[in-house]
Computed example of a mutant assay.
Amino acid sequence: MNQARQAKMGGFLVVAVWAGTALAQAPAGSGSIYTCTDANGRRITADRPIATCVDREQRVLGNTGVELRRVAPTQTEQERNAYEARRRQELADQARLREERSRDKAMLLRYPNQASHDAARNEALSQSTDVSAVAQMRLGELKQRRKKIDTELEFYQGNPAKAPASLRRQIKDNTESQEEQQRFIQQQEEEQQRINQRFDAELQQLRKLWGQTAANPAR
């Protein structure tokens, strides 16, 4: 009697395990209804994704007819490439926006008001002016030296070709040195223009940031 009962219980266990396995292996669409309208305007219904509607949205309904979800159309390679390009552009724009915000924050910390910005401009210009002043002084010395050389050259009727090699060398060196100092002075003038342009552009942006900060102190 006990053996018969154990055999019967064993049979129930086998059936239960088989039923659970079958349920687990059932397709995801089991019990769902797929519906769509194809390219010809026909309404199609099936118990699995509809191949003729792969290029359009499909509705998935439950047994009661309630919509469970929607299946998006399958993208073509061209559509996927376009999507990826848009996504890359969005990420690049987001990175650029974060960089701009970080730069604006750093600029506000460095220049909380126009007085601090004006002081930084004057400091930058002062450094360039000092360098240019040294070059101007050196140029003046070279011009004074050239007068002495020209005085010596008068003994040779002002013709360098008749002057000795040492005097000709002095004339050549003095000319090259003056040209070098003039180029250096010109470079400093251009540098001062760049400094003013940079600070002008910063000031334009800072005025916007200062205005925003005044309007929204918490920010």
Rank of each mutant, 00 (worst) to 15 (best):
D104V: 06
P164C: 07
Q75W: 08
W18D: 09
A51N: 11
A39C: 07
R80Y: 07
A46V: 03
T37H: 02
L97N: 09
G29N: 02
T52D: 15
I185V: 01
T35S: 06
M107S: 01
K8N: 12
Q127K: 13
V71D: 04
A39R: 13
E152G: 03
V15F: 03
S128F: 13
F184D: 04
A7C: 05
A72Q: 02
R98S: 10
Y83F: 15
V131D: 14
M9R: 14
R219Q: 11
Q6H: 13
Q193V: 06
G65S: 07
A161K: 15
R88C: 07
A16S: 11
E179Q: 15
Q188L: 06
Y34E: 01
A124E: 06
L142S: 12
L203E: 10
G158H: 05
D38V: 06
D93N: 14
E99F: 05
A135I: 01
I33H: 01
Q136D: 14
D130Y: 12
E141I: 13
E180I: 10
N159R: 11
A124F: 00
I33R: 00
E180P: 01
S116M: 14
A218L: 11
M107I: 05
K143M: 07
E190C: 11
E190P: 10
Q188S: 07
R207A: 11
R121N: 09
P164Q: 05
L139R: 08
Q94H: 09
R121F: 09
R101F: 10
R43Y: 11
E84N: 05
R198E: 10
E152A: 14
Y83E: 15
Q25F: 04
I185T: 02
Y156F: 09
K147L: 06
A24C: 01
R145C: 01
G65H: 07
Q186H: 11
A120C: 02
F12W: 13
A82N: 13
R145T: 08
S166P: 06
E190S: 15
D200K: 10
M1S: 14
Q6M: 14
F12L: 15
D38H: 11
T45G: 02
I33W: 00
L91F: 12
I44Q: 06
P73W: 02
S32P: 04
A161W: 12
A95V: 04
S126Y: 08
S126F: 07
Q25K: 05
I185K: 00
S102T: 10
V60I: 08
V15Q: 01
E191K: 12
V60P: 02
R5Y: 13
I149Y: 05
K105I: 04
G158S: 05
E189N: 12
K143A: 08
P27V: 00
Q78R: 11
S30F: 02
Y83V: 13
E123W: 08
L203S: 14
R43P: 09
N122I: 10
S102I: 11
R56Y: 02
